[in-house]
Amino acid sequence: MIARFAIRLFLAAMALLLAAPLAVVAGVSINEKKSLTFPPQGFSLAWYGEIFAEAGWRNALFASLGIALASAALAVIVALPLAWFLWRRHAPWARLVQLLGFAPFVLPPVITALGFLSFWNAAGFYGAAWTVVISHGIFFVTLPLVTLTLGFEAIDGSLVEAAATMGADEPTILRTVVLPLILPYMISGFAFAFVLSLNEYIVAYMTVGFTVETLPIRIFNSLRYGYTPTMAAVAVLFVVIAAVVFGLVARFGDLPKLLGAWSPRED
């Protein structure tokens, strides 16, 4: 009885700690006047409108969305053949390529960012808007690689055997058996890469920081001139986007399994 109460209390405390900064930001984002006060004074959604009405914020929003969509697509396109090859072919050396795919995510991000800065600078494309798409695509390739590797492992090998026995060649098996089974994992890999790219600051800053303003870059730049409720509104927008995207992944896929739990027990 006491134990159960203590567990509830601990979980509630963790939830509160995790939610507290977000709650305060949500609170200040509805202030009526252009000041950050909490508890909020008055109620106004004007600051959310500002994101779309003010050209600077609107451009940053669209730049961020465009970069996130393109780079998440690139990450999936790079990860898919790699994960397929690792699953379908027997080639121990291919693990090395897999390791390269994991590396950007494990190392401190500032290192990858600095690598890209030197690279684009040497290549003569420093500051070009498309460089951030490639940079993010490579930086986040780990996420679809992980989800797709899980997805391929989950495919029942006898399905592939059966298709082969019935005379299907490799491309047909891929199209009719493998791709439909792997699609949810592709989508979740895309979703993870998309949300993280949307939030990414340091790689974007070091590649296109002086030519393109993404939302995180714009928030950071405006922090210098003081805090405004618009920034709080943008922060809330980010939390909502992340929660909606991951909620959808959970709705249409098995989130615990994607994050490494065994498939659910039969009970």
Binding site: L18, L22, V25, F192, V195, L196, N199, E200, Y201, I202, P216, I219, F220, L223, V234, A235, F238, V239, A242, F246
Partner: peptide, 8 residues
């Protein structure tokens, strides 16, 4: 929370 930008 994990995906939130350090800026935010």
């Amino acid at each position: 929370v994990l995906s939130l930008s350090e800026v935010i």
